[in-house]
Design a protein around this nucleic acid. Sequence first.
DNA 1: CGGTTCTTTGAGGACCATCAATACGCGTGG
DNA 2: CCACGCGTATTGATGGTCCTCAAAGAACCG
Lengths: 228, 228
Amino acid sequence: MTTARFESIRELPLFGEMTDEAFDTLTRGAFVQNFPPNMVMITEGEAADFLHIVQSGCVELFSTWSNRETSVTTLYENSTFILAATMKDRLNLMSARTLQKSRIIMIPSENVRSVFANDPKFALAIVDELSRCYRATIRNMKNLKLRTSIERLANYILKQHHRQGDALAYQLPIEKRRLASYLGMTPENLSRAFNNLKPHGVMVDGQTITITDLATLTAFAKPDILID
Amino acid sequence: MTTARFESIRELPLFGEMTDEAFDTLTRGAFVQNFPPNMVMITEGEAADFLHIVQSGCVELFSTWSNRETSVTTLYENSTFILAATMKDRLNLMSARTLQKSRIIMIPSENVRSVFANDPKFALAIVDELSRCYRATIRNMKNLKLRTSIERLANYILKQHHRQGDALAYQLPIEKRRLASYLGMTPENLSRAFNNLKPHGVMVDGQTITITDLATLTAFAKPDILID
DNA sequence: CGGTTCTTTGAGGACCATCAATACGCGTGG
DNA sequence: CCACGCGTATTGATGGTCCTCAAAGAACCG
């Protein structure tokens, strides 16, 4: 049975509510691919032939222009990407590379568009996912434009703290140079920014972040539900 | 007949393909409102009770944090806003103010969500609009992260040039201080950036931009279909 | 263990923000 | 019509932030 290989994504919010028939149609022609770390899967400017889903591993979306590169976001298990370009049948605006060994499910864009037209539950789920990604990008932009680099770092540290079960000590999930790029700064400056946060309750040792004074850090970062 | 007041938007891509019945349902409880210039219609953090459409005039979406403010985008005739928050029934992430005297159509968010579920053509149009806005935001972010402020200004000047029928001389559509905020810089710096662009083929006199050397300006700006 | 990549630190400079002062534009009311 | 006031735009001076370049130290991997 074709769906067997895609059991793992059947329960995702994006696919959970649709009919079995629609799910079969969707995954016909879909496939799973394993990628080694640091492999560019998608280059910006190409057609969006497949909706991608991270089954395991970790993917970075990034963009380049005029010999410069910037990290836009990092995706983990069960995230989709290339959804907007898939729905509009347009060119990808971002490139994608694996950061670790990753398993990626690829669903033909045509399938997504045709099932969208025939399964209202799936249509709703698509809109939900699109809206979520859109709003995440707006938040990202507000973060970049309204905060200094040190404030962005402070809020990033707090967000990871919550994502990792409110642990006061945790490992950074990505390399520092990529974090720097995501936060809109250079690796050198990220290093200095970490030092600047010492008096605000942050210790760093390699990949390990330790929050020594949560109250002080929070007071400095001023996290906001409309940004973070 | 209720739809009479909304004739003007019936032909928009978002509403053009839906059934008359669905359009009636959608506009039931909708209304048109006139706003004077410089009036804040929506404040971030509020619930998104209405989908908004600019019928005439001009609206700026902006955000604030910790006594800072930034312009995210400017909308003109026939643009929608608050679509993502409307679909997900979430809080607005941005505020909106009129820049000129404006006529705004407001459609109850509940109507949008219920018609979405019942009219596939409308659902498709919603996804199209959402994807378009999402991709525009990604472009905006790439512009901010990959280019210097002068490069952003140069590309903005080129983009307006095309929007205004390839005119080599045209009026800026918004105040310079708002343009500065949109481009992620201060008004003072925008002034200096205009001066810096003189040798690259740009003359400025008040609100009037004159491109004196399109080839040189284009060579400097390096516009890119994946950003602009 | 050697090479590569990443990270950190320092020095210097470019870019950008802030502050202050002036000039300009525009609408209002005298 | 002019004077005035208000907000915007410009210009200069200054300081801070951030980037670049360079070099050394640390981590990773074959």
